[in-house]
Design a protein around this nucleic acid. Sequence first.
DNA 1: ATATCATTTCGTATATTTGCGAAATATAAA
DNA 2: TTTATATTTCGCAAATATACGAAATGATAT
Lengths: 116, 116
Amino acid sequence: MTTKVKLPENAVEIARISKALSHPVRVYIIQKLAKMDSCCYSGDLVDELPVGRSTLSQHLKELKYSGLIQGEINPPYIKYCINRGNWDKAKRLFEDFLNENDPANIMCESSEALKK
Amino acid sequence: MTTKVKLPENAVEIARISKALSHPVRVYIIQKLAKMDSCCYSGDLVDELPVGRSTLSQHLKELKYSGLIQGEINPPYIKYCINRGNWDKAKRLFEDFLNENDPANIMCESSEALKK
DNA sequence: ATATCATTTCGTATATTTGCGAAATATAAA
DNA sequence: TTTATATTTCGCAAATATACGAAATGATAT
């Protein structure tokens, strides 16, 4: 049989964003930048985060690659900001994903509970 | 000077859930189980997903470990369902995370803003 | 007891992630 | 030009993730 499905684009996209958020340091950076509504130097972050400079740099690179943040060169500093457009897109993607299941699962859960 | 922060619990938790969702196959499984209003056999999933049985089994194991799904043995099948309680918890966690940067919330962070 | 069935675990291979310090880069100041 | 500063890239090691087929598991049917 095997009616194999090509994984739908939204699943691929959610996985991609989730991967970018799959490390506490990166979540922390996003939280901070999203809350601040302003930019932030790598040096500010390395002072408060429990990782070395080069490691932080890699996390920033990954977030940049994911599109969630952007870096603006402002020598000798680099200012990092949330990429509002992509962050909002990610937010919508997740909102949809998280609410795909509202009325449904009460059935499953109650039958689960009854079987115990 | 290096006021290193212990990464806050919610950042750690969001990263943990994100990691569980960082593979398209796992996202697809969650989408399906959340939408389905019932449970699902591993065999049903392997027929439609482009991975082998043992690989799927590993993804299910990881989702189970994350708490997002639960498996109920019903020999010779195993029925998988969303874990309603944990999924709701994850949803709330993400909702908060995704909305931390709303204008209303930024108001509440006034002490933060004033410090700068 | 043997066979069958759905699923998992094991063994293995490969790829990716995470982390660090050292060296490189790029700019500004002395 | 030399020096200092902020950040990134390089080189490496260790850990984790992904994937598969083969073998094991646990239950039922013959």
